[in-house]
């Protein structure tokens, strides 16, 4: 999980977590290890974002810091970027500038 200088690409924050936190940006085609298995990065991932530690089905609770932080709305493969397209809150839905604009256009404003 680390580069030539020994600096990790991704961090496991808690042993029970099923996502890894990207601490150096990942670029398509880059080779990293996930759970000891070689992995070729399939999409660019920025610092602070999450990738899946395992293959997981839709509905799976995602754990970060050892705590649940939402549920998968789509199945994911190990190494895949986990974000708003496949993870949703179990409390209040997340909004973005785009989702606010979409809501406005649905209301016909």
């Amino acid at each position: 999980m680390s580069d030539a200088s020994g600096r990790p690409h991704v961090l496991l924050l808690h042993p029970s977590d099923n996502v890894l936190i990207c601490v150096q940006s990942l670029a398509v085609g880059q080779h990293i290890d996930i759970e000891g298995e070689p992995y070729v990065v399939a999409q660019n991932v920025a610092v602070g974002h999450k990738i899946a530690r395992y293959d997981m089905p839709s509905g799976e609770k995602i754990r970060r810091y050892g705590a649940p932080v939402g549920s998968l709305s789509q199945p994911v493969k190990a190494g895949e970027w986990v974000h708003m397209h496949n993870l949703q809150s179990d409390y209040l839905a997340t909004h973005t500038r785009q989702s606010v604009a979409r809501q406005r256009s649905l209301k016909g404003e």
Partner: peptide, 27 residues
Amino acid sequence: YRTMGFGSFAPGNADGGLTTLEEKSMG
């Protein structure tokens, strides 16, 4: 916050890799 229609979560939080309110909360 449910009544207000939005949780305490700004678009920049998502740009920076946070996906859900509870994930932001834990941090």
